[in-house]
Design a protein around this nucleic acid. Structure first.
Length: 626
RNA sequence: GUGCCCGUAGCUCAAUUGGAUAGAGCGCUGCCCUCCGAAGGCAGAGGUUACAGGUUCAACUCCUGUCGGGCAUACCA
């Protein structure tokens, strides 16, 4: 079948845009070649498949009634080979031009889409993109708060890689500084006293010690200040002063430990190493279970920047970018009142200092064109300051490049409980990530046992794991990244409506069709039909499905541009819905004739591929049965 | 105090970045399995998009103000 379409065009929006651009240029040469055809899929099927909104701004710019402009455009428009003939009724409202594609156009667009790339071709100039994700701290148990940085970061990395860019994942590990030194010191004491066995220490133990040390030093200090201000009962103050003296002593000891750590004192370093190993083993295991690609090679601790910091600060100071302020050293960023503090009065460095070193390494050593930080939205001021400082310092510019690389904070909101407050256990504690995942999988297991008790137990367990993880990832990606979202297990694992399992289920139905088809028609016949039958998009549900499929490449690109995974989730929900409509109204194996059956088999195969591709971008592993 | 983010159906969320009558899911009321998996589909009810102005052919979307909520605000990460 010879097609009138340009070879490379699978996207109806682009094909139509080209034709409209030509028509506009012919009708209104004075509008210039840049006049935007404003093609978009129609929201409402009764307005056809696509619409052009070009006439309104054009009419405005040229002082012509928009409907008249629309008529002029239509008169010069040559799309008879693609679309149903345009009539007076095609121009609606203030000047919308409605287009309904011909069934054979849809068929040939679908066959273009049905290439290995699924319409997502490598960019002219692939970028190197660093994605900062996960972000754990040593000696701290992971909790639900971490899943967003893992899941969103992993998804964005997958999408950008799919778009053909080179991705460098970076798990920025908080493994340095006084808090860690305190844990090291405490651990060494306890080990020396024979109270613990370093070889058998768990992350839970470390977490407990960390929190003890942390709360002690902070609470005492705050208590003393409050006491001085409010009570000022001499005895109470004296008592607290004694406690703070104890805390100060612990602090002094931690500082000593930190110095030894920095000089790689073997005994101290070994304990620190042990803490890092225990923490990272747990972290990477969690990531793996969540289907997030984070490995040791992706992990760079703050410790790896420690030695660069004095030189970095000296560099900023000598070039006059950093200036003293109130004893500290700061970088001023235009338009922001707060300064970016890079060295404390006592000479210590801060996380902003480390992040500056991080940007320098990522841009200048790794050659990043773009650095994306998947971090909590509460850090947004911090990143504004650090980005501003890095750009001022030139650290964000690749050697030889004219302009700074793109630094982006892909900020995300918090996970809230049903009461609208941060998601916590009944006791008010953070929900441990392991408990959280376990509950999701357990609930999924109950559903699988109930709905499909005949499957072997092993398979049921594997399905429950996949469904539970799918539900978690979907829930975390489904709504607008920057907003907080309200989480409940009940809703997430109701398995109805826009959930992970719904998407998996649509795919399971497709797989089931192919299983049955292979039984009845033979594997080879099915494979041939699925790979090469002419597409047909005549029935309404076939057409809806076809239009949904054709949107896929543009959606993936939009996610890469906006860093908003919920667009892909929403799209896949639409696609799954379109397939479910097709499934109920367009029998495949019972199709009225052989050509229809083959065409539908191919449509199923393409839907399978797009759905699978999209789910994988979300880090959701497809299933054959559930 | 200042800055940033947010306010959409009873609940949880969308709205192709300024386009037509604001859409889904849950819940509610009814249907649809002798037919490829009902974790599905179809239909119904449910809205002054917090409020008041403004910008324009067109505003949930942009601007100003008010109210309400969250977060952040110099030496912790």
């Amino acid at each position: 079948m010879s097609s009138p379409l340009p070879r490379e065009s699978y996207d109806p929006v682009q094909v139509l845009a080209e034709r409209f651009r030509t028509a506009i240029a012919a009708a209104y040469p004075q509008a210039g070649p840049d006049a935007d055809p404003l093609i978009s899929p129609s929201r409402n099927p009764k307005f056809g498949d696509f619409q052009s909104n070009a006439a309104m701004p054009l009419g405005k710019a040229l002082g012509i009634p928009p409907r008249q402009a629309a008529q002029q455009i239509v008169q010069h428009l040559d799309i008879a080979d693609l679309a149903e003939p345009l009539t007076d009724a095609s121009i609606a409202g203030p000047g919308f031009i409605n287009i309904t594609l011909r069934a054979d156009t849809l068929a040939s667009l679908l066959s273009r889409l049905d290439a290995p790339s699924l319409g997502i071709d490598p960019p002219a100039r692939p970028q190197t993109i660093v994605v900062d994700l996960c972000g754990v701290n040593l000696a701290k148990q992971m909790h639900v708060g971490h899943i967003r940085a893992i899941i969103i970061g992993d998804t964005l990395a997958r999408v950008l890689a799919r778009l053909g860019h080179t991705i460098i994942r970076q798990n920025h590990v908080g493994d340095w500084g006084l808090p860690i030194a305190m844990v090291v010191a405490e651990l060494m004491d306890r080990a020396a006293a024979g109270a613990i066995d370093l070889d058998r220490i768990t992350l839970d133990d470390l977490d407990a010690i960390y929190r003890e040390a942390q709360s002690q030093s902070e609470a005492d200090r705050r208590g003393l200040e409050a006491a001085r201000r409010w009570w000022s009962h001499p005895k109470a103050v004296a008592e607290l002063e004694a406690q703070v003296a104890g805390a100060d002593e612990a602090m002094a000891r931690a500082k000593g430990t930190l110095v030894k750590l920095q000089s790689h004192d073997p005994a101290v370093y070994a304990v620190w190493r042990r803490i890092a190993d225990v923490t990272m083993a747990a972290c990477l295991a969690h990531c793996r279970r969540l289907n997030a690609i984070v490995t040791p090679e992706h992990s760079a601790g703050e410790s790896s920047y420690a030695e660069e910091l004095p030189d970095l600060v000296a560099d900023l100071e000598s070039r006059g970018i950093a200036q003293p302020s109130d004893g500290a050293l700061v970088v001023r960023v235009e338009g922001i009142e707060e300064p970016c503090i890079i060295r404390k009065r006592d000479g210590g460095y801060l996380y902003a200092t480390t992040d500056l070193a991080g940007i320098r390494r990522r841009v200048q050593e790794f050659g990043a064109d773009r650095v994306i930080y998947c971090v909590d939205s509460r850090q947004s001021l911090h990143f504004q300051l650090v980005f501003g400082a890095a750009i001022r310092a030139g650290y964000a510019t690749r050697p030889g490049a004219g302009a700074p690389s793109l630094l982006q904070h892909a900020a995300f909101g918090s996970i809230l409980g049903e009461d609208g407050r941060p998601f916590k256990t009944r006791a008010g504690e953070n929900v441990r990530l392991s408990d959280f995942i376990a509950e999701a999988v357990e609930r999924a297991a109950r559903a699988v046992d109930q709905k499909n008790p005949d499957l072997p137990e092993r398979e049921r367990a594997a399905i429950a794991e996949a469904v539970g993880i799918a539900a978690i990832r979907h829930a975390d990606l489904a709504s607008d990244r920057v907003k907080d979202y309200v989480f409940t297990f009940d809703r997430m694992l109701a398995f109805e409506g826009n959930t992970g399992p719904y998407l998996l289920y649509a795919l399971v139905r497709i797989k089931s069709i192919f299983r049955k088809a292979a039984e009845r028609l033979g594997e080879d016949a099915v494979r041939r039909a699925a790979a090469a039958s002419p597409f047909v998009a005549g029935a309404p549900d076939e057409k809806t499905l076809a239009l949904a499929l054709l949107r896929y490449p543009a959606v993936v690109r939009a996610v890469g541009d906006t860093l908003e995974p919920h667009r892909l989730v929403q799209y896949l929900f639409d696609l799954a819905g379109a397939f479910n409509g097709f499934f109920t109204n367009c029998p495949v194996l019972q199709a009225p004739d052989e050509p229809t059956r083959s065409a539908r088999l191919r449509l199923c195969a393409l839907t399978d591929r797009v759905l699978t591709d999209g789910l994988r971008l979300l880090g959701i592993e497809p299933l054959a049965r559930m």
